[in-house]
Design a protein around this nucleic acid. Structure first.
Lengths: 329, 329
DNA sequence: CATCGTTGTTCCAACGATGTAAAGACCGTG
DNA sequence: CACGGTCTTTACATCGTTGGAACAACGATG
């Protein structure tokens, strides 16, 4: 592999001059520039990023800390983050925490400043005291605890209200919620939105219609739905806190011969790609994932360049994708 | 951020002694070792990976080049590769090619030896002449062209035969195939297996029942299924070359009121997580993704340590997950 | 023609870690 | 107590790059 030295020898100039050409420094004689460029071409020179970053004090990487890539929402988001990072000449390092506190702590611990320039975090269990980071970071999604980190995400309360209002507008009155979770900040906010929409419509808040979910996997949605259908007075609609839960719920409904959407309307959250193709297709709250990815990376780029910018809180847009899983009674 | 120098000063020893302690060199006096360890603890020292790798000539990264993270198969695989790489102290850099030749060439070009120690490739369009790599690499999946690179994957012909034999054993006789593709090596192999299974059973090969797919997305499966249902004599079973195509096909069937599995049995390929939760759930060829990830990383570790090991071709196991989408006539 | 500013180039040091060689400490032995 | 051999530590160079200072060349200016 060719180094600057090799190129310099071939072009008959100093190493620094080659470096200047590579980095687009203006004052290089046309003649030398040509010779250097020819030598670069001839040797197929590619800068050694390790060395460059050692010298510059940057690494060229950002970390993306998320629960699990096998969860479609995070996979889709990761793809978008990678694309957005590329435009800032950043490479993305993905760390999976599997949603556990220890996994998250471990991921954070490995985020020394020599490994990454910045980090995008999507934690589920972290405590306030864990957020002692040595690099600029941004939190994806809202959390109910106050942490000294910038955030990017949608307004979860408003989004949940939109979903539940939609169900109410269809004449549904016994609306369940799947996905309550004592630790998750977003869960608390979505529950708050659910509650607010019910209240607004004068519907009672029935605690037996609120089902927790340990994880947010399909199996958890299926189990929660079983519990709901076993109630003496089952719901006529369900608001699921993510699409996987909704898919699980739909599966249980099908097994129990409960007709979706007629007997049971279902709304999900995240608008996964798969949700447009289920039968029936799933109505879902659709955060603008590309906007989230872009905003997060942009925010980090700014913080990486000037570290003491104030905290920011970027609200990205969302919409409600109405599909077959919700119709009027 | 503390460096070896800081630790050395604090412990009252030379930089190299600290380095020796950090790297587990045996001959350090207990007394010094203790002092160094205390100093390491006190300063919270973490090695600068850039510098270490510059010196050692390795980067600590491997590349995972794949079409798109939003495709569940690759997302699941990526998660497993990351986990497997972690055990070898490798970080994974994901590059998306979006299945285009230019995207793949670009990804390959960026794989200089100073960026990554090795690479895992999942190409779709690359030509033989593109495989001039400067780092050890392994190809995921089989390809019909011969390339001088080690491979890891299942036996696609056998897997396809297993799927089609299953349909035949259920009494299906007009079996379609969705996913033919002129460029993709795996497509050719799966088609070969499809053909072989038909022949073995004495069933005719009907070319109108073989539908190509440009991409392997859900929409392509839906479109292909529409074409099949428009035939004068539509199929009673479909073998889809991946689960996304199968999900699309199921969706079209539902829209057209074709009953799956009774009127139409469907088999997919990849066994995505979502396939267990569709209604009906999807029978699918299930490659052992964890085994693939592990084998690929292990193989690269060996090649990284001793670069001139011979080419290898690891066959990983697969099974057929029979679910609701296939029953006897 | 001495001086100056501009332009272009080179030399040197540094980023933080590690391999090498050599020096130093320490032991037992003759 | 000099010697050799085994531990233990250190100084130094080095990986490939870039920032800064120094230097060199140049025409223009007074």
């Amino acid at each position: 592999m060719a180094t600057l030295k090799d190129v310099a020898r071939l072009a008959g100039v100093s190493v620094k001059t080659v470096s200047n050409v590579v980095n687009g420094y203006s004052f290089v004689k046309p003649d030398n520039r040509r010779r250097v460029e020819e030598a670069l071409e001839a040797t197929g020179y590619r800068p050694n990023l390790g060395a460059r970053n050692l010298r510059r004090g940057r690494t060229g990487f950002i970390a993306l800390v998320l629960p699990e890539l096998s969860i479609p929402y995070f996979a889709e988001l990761a793809g978008l983050v990678i694309a957005a990072a590329q435009e800032h000449e950043w490479n993305v390092l993905i760390e999976q925490t599997f949603g556990t506190l220890s996994g998250e702590r471990q991921a954070l611990a490995s985020l020394g400043p020599h490994l990454v320039d910045a980090a995008i975090l999507s934690p589920e269990a972290l405590q306030v005291e864990d957020f002692q980071l040595s690099v600029p970071a941004v939190l994806l999604g809202e959390h109910d605890v106050e942490v000294p980190i910038s955030r990017v995400g949608i307004d979860n309360v408003a989004a949940a209200m939109t979903a539940v209002r939609h169900l109410i507008s269809l004449g549904r009155t016994r609306i369940a919620a799947i996905g309550a979770h004592p630790q998750r900040g977003t869960a608390a906010l979505r529950l708050e939105g659910y509650r607010a929409a019910l209240e607004e419509a004068g519907l009672p808040f029935v605690s037996s219609l609120v089902v927790p979910a340990v994880n947010y996997h399909r199996a958890d949605g299926a189990a929660a739905m079983r519990a709901l259908l076993d109630l003496r007075n089952p719901p006529d609609a369900v608001f699921c806190f993510n699409d996987l839960l909704a898919v699980g719920a739909m599966r249980t409904a099908a097994e129990r011969f409960v007709r979706v959407p007629h007997d049971l309307a279902i709304v999900g959250f995240d608008n996964n790609d798969e949700s447009a193709y289920s039968s029936p297709s799933l109505t879902s709250v659709a955060p603008d994932k590309a906007a989230i990815a872009r905003a997060a990376v942009d925010l980090l780029r700014q913080r990486a360049d000037s570290p003491d910018l104030a905290l920011d809180d970027v609200q990205t847009p969302f919409s409600l994708q109405v599909r077959e899983s919700t119709v009027a009674r």
